[in-house]
């Protein structure tokens, strides 16, 4: 189980490395190009490519962050066991909900 979690964190980290670079490059491009909010929305609304990209981004975060937080909670707060894991599942659900809400917000 722990080995699987470690693999999942490594794999999601590899995805995040790519996603963060694309995300930052896009932001820099949008800001420097002087795009307005309406112009950005015009590009993202209905775009399946952006929907897929940001859905993968959110999914990678949902996998990566709780596993990292698991070690932080253990080492800093000595919190482990079922109660911590339930908290982390809830935390993952909150990130997934907030992330997908943002993604759909600019898609729909």
């Amino acid at each position: 189980m722990h080995s699987f979690l470690w693999l999942a964190q490594r794999a999601s980290a590899a995805l995040l490395a790519l996603c963060v670079v694309v995300h930052l490059a896009t932001m820099v491009y949008a800001v420097r190009g002087g795009l307005s909010a309406a112009e950005i929305l015009a590009r993202t609304q209905g775009s399946l490519a952006w929907l897929a990209f940001y859905s993968v981004f959110v999914l990678a975060i949902v996998v990566h962050v709780p596993i990292g937080l698991r070690a932080v909670l253990h080492e800093w707060l000595k919190w482990r066991g079922a109660s911590r894991d339930m908290f982390l599942l809830l935390f993952a659900a909150v990130i997934a909900w907030a992330g997908m809400r943002a993604v759909l917000g600019v898609f729909l």
Binding site: H2, S3, L5, W6, A71, H74
Partner: peptide, 9 residues
């Protein structure tokens, strides 16, 4: 050596 007490930490 796998797991929380092992190399993954």
């Amino acid at each position: 050596v796998a797991g929380d007490a092992g190399c993954h930490s």
